[in-house]
Amino acid sequence: MYLLELYQNNYSKDLVLFETLEEGREFVAQIPGYTLETEDGFDVEYVNPKYLPDYMEIVFNGNIVPLSRFSFNSEENVDIIWKEISNLSVKNDKVIEGYSKIDAYVVNNDEVKAYVEAREANYRKAKDFIERCGYEADRSFFGSEDGEAILYRKCGAEDWHFLCHLDPLFVEIEDVEEYVKEALEEAF
């Protein structure tokens, strides 16, 4: 199912729900000022509110959806955002469609388990190696724009040093000990 969100200048309105994206696009195509463009390989959809009348109704499958130009700032386009929503009332034996936010990064739902397990396994390997080399390790910056990171310092030292973020590139590192060893050699 697809939820139609209208978004403009930090205001969002969840408007209606469709079984398919095709149905949704059939609906939004009826809105005056609707545009569908492709930018960098991605579909971008918006409505220019200058083309909306004072009041209008779109009838879709017998449902009447009111729209008004007075709902939007006429100087900015209204972004159309499609949110794929899983219907839990329908029996299904698979991970729900969509994505999850893991720290500062977005991961497809069907990849979340493997991503988190690989991320934490690599963190443990890095931490263990750092400590075997005579350093202390710490996790910091959870919730920051760039996400959580590994910091290290010589035991008893005051200053912490940045090693790396726990980002998707970190998850893909195959030889964590070699990665950490090189980083420690460069730092000291």
Rank of each mutant, 00 (worst) to 15 (best):
D110Q: 08
P53L: 13
D103K: 04
Y51Q: 09
K125N: 13
I64A: 14
S74R: 15
E76S: 09
K94R: 08
N122G: 05
K127W: 11
A104S: 10
N73P: 02
K127S: 14
S68L: 06
E120P: 09
F72Q: 00
A104E: 04
Y115V: 03
V112C: 07
K127Y: 12
N87P: 02
I102S: 12
N122A: 04
E97V: 03
E131P: 11
F60W: 15
D138S: 15
V65I: 14
D79F: 05
R132D: 07
K91D: 06
S71A: 11
L88R: 04
S100C: 04
A121I: 03
G62L: 07
Y105A: 01
K113P: 00
M56P: 14
P49Q: 11
A104F: 02
S100R: 02
N109M: 07
N48C: 13
A121H: 12
E75P: 04
K127P: 08
R132V: 07
A126W: 06
K125E: 07
E75Q: 08
N77F: 00
N87S: 09
A137K: 08
E117F: 09
S74M: 10
L52N: 08
N87E: 06
E120Q: 15
R119Q: 11
G134F: 09
I85V: 15
K83G: 03
D138I: 05
N92F: 02
I80D: 00
P49I: 14
I81R: 10
P49M: 15
D93C: 05
L52H: 05
S89N: 15
V65K: 00
Y135T: 03
E111T: 09
R119V: 00
N92S: 11
G62M: 06
Y135H: 06
Y135A: 01
E84V: 02
M56K: 10
S74G: 09
N92C: 07
D110P: 04
V59C: 08
Y51E: 11
N61I: 05
A114W: 06
F129I: 13
N92M: 06
E84C: 01
D79I: 01
Y115M: 09
K125D: 05
V90C: 02
L67Q: 07
E120C: 05
N48A: 08
A114F: 10
E136G: 09
N87F: 01
S74L: 14
A114G: 03
A114V: 04
F72G: 00
G134V: 11
V106K: 08
Y135R: 03
I96G: 01
R119T: 00
N73R: 12
R69A: 01
I58M: 08
